[in-house]
Design a protein around this nucleic acid. Sequence first.
RNA 1: GGCUCCGUAGUUCAAUGGAUAGAACGGAAGUUUCCUAAACUUUAAAUGCAGGUUCGAUUCCUGCCGGGGCUACCA
Length: 596
Amino acid sequence: MIGKKLLEQTCEAVKQLYGQEIKPGTIGLEITKKEIAGDFTIVVFPLLKISHKSPEATANDIGNFLKASIPEISEFNVIKGFLNIVLYDGFWLDFLQENCLRSDFGILEPRKEAPIVLEYSSPNTNKPLHLGHIRNNLLGFSLSEILKANGHNVVKVNLVNDRGIHICKSMLAYMKWGNGETPVSSGIKGDHLIGRYYVLFDSEYKTEIKQLVDQGLTEELAAKQAPLILEAQEVLRKWEARDPEIYQLWETMNNWAYEGFDLTYRRLGVDFNKIYYESGTYLLGKELVMEGLASGALLKKEDGSIWADLRDEGLDEKLLLRADGTSVYMTQDLGTAQLRYDEFRPSDMIYVVGNEQNYHFDVLKKVLGKLGKEFAGHISHLSYGMVELPMGKMKSREGTVVDADDLMDEMYLTAETTTRELGKANELSGDEAFALFNTIGLGALKYFILKVDPKKNMLFDPKESIDFNGNTGPFIQYTYARIRSLLSRAQAAGFAPGGTDIPPGTSLEPLEKETIRRLFLFSGAVIQAGSEMNPAVIANYVYDLAKGYNQFYQELPVLKEDNPAKLMIRLTITEFVGRTIQTAMTLLGIGVPARM
RNA sequence: GGCUCCGUAGUUCAAUGGAUAGAACGGAAGUUUCCUAAACUUUAAAUGCAGGUUCGAUUCCUGCCGGGGCUACCA
């Protein structure tokens, strides 16, 4: 509001003073830096060409104009080309009183418009979820919350890769060496049990390759001719032909995986509105490919395989259907996209997928475009960086994968140990303690992942583990718990935050005003996080808010303040900060405890 | 090789082209008869190299050096 007014009036000032129309976008409006007197700063350097005056003179011109036209402005100062504007404390008090009790502060009303379909998670059924999936799931869930807070209607979808050569490998290994083992008989979580057979396949396969190489074959040839891989391919063909025995085993093993995934998802706190299965979409993909072939958009090679030629668009040729008629990853993604479009008529389709698949999504969009799908232009890819370990990339075959379930177990244990060491679990019941350790442990993990810009690779050191002090989830949770504690004391003493008792004309102390200014910035952070598809914006915002409040809390008495007006202002700020921390953490998918 | 992303304190992360490059951890020194010390305060410490555009560059452009990813009839 005030920001918009400042920009508009600055444009008006330029028009009246210098006789030239400019767009608001050409002016830089910022929050004044902490060390400098002021609330908002307008950078006038870009206007010098129009004003033909020095930076100082230009800033003074505009400052005088704004002060005359905007009643909220009490004064201004100029440092070089920076026009620092100071608002009356009354402006900040009004803002505080109007918003402190709103549960929807910073959140936009849902709009009635076509939904955004957001795909995330996308597991393979041949192995359990790991740290990379955790980043994916946390980003996807948080992004959905952020988009909703921006007024969008969001449909969260999961696409399970339940078919393909990878699951056939697990199945083959199970048929050969499984001896009828089940999650119940072994006591192993279903997804982990399947993962074992995938690993087993891989090691046996490697052994075969080595033998063939010893017999004189090249590595490449050996990998193609090893009996196990040929058998796995045969399993895939049988599966596509709906061979009853194979099909039944496939259903059984996939259900093991789903049971395992459900537990992991529930614990992580993520969910979906709809789950797609690749087995249910790849046939539609095949149809689309055949249509594309008929229309001449695609081409068939001599061996019968079908391709998209994207060479004139800067990419290469892309296989869409193998010579034996079986489909590939791209085939089903074409079908899935079409299915989603038909089902939801979305305004946009967002895919949360690692940056190693950037090329895949370039190709997907181009192929859909070639097939004449206008929704191809509404596909966007939230491409996130990899999670690296100190040793480098995670490799399932080398056993350096950080398992999602194990990691959550460790976080829980660390939370428990730390809390007990601090003596803060003594008065809790068993259920309360369990809930608290989960909240803290997961909060630490989630914040650790989400505070990093999604686009960037990030490092995770399992040995160093995740800290609970400093710029962390528990730090923010702790700030919240102290606020809740203070608020319940206030209630007991008969004080109700809300600011009705604040006399007009009350002045604010620097720490009070600074905290209110931080609260003021929340709406902008929500909008920025949404438009950039970046939860880290919210994470960094809420850390800054909590950090600032801790200083406020340390330096200023609230309930022990003698002056009733000051007491009310500080209590109201406390209430407002507590609500905003909770809202922001909800956008990240992180819970906050009433005490810790 | 081609395409692409990334190089910021010892370490992990910030910084719509704007003021003196912010935090946290680790290091050094402090704060508790006071609303929860998982906190707060003080302090040392960084933009890979060389050019260019600009009033102004960590940010944009070029080259170099270093690292990741893709370049599959895997997903």
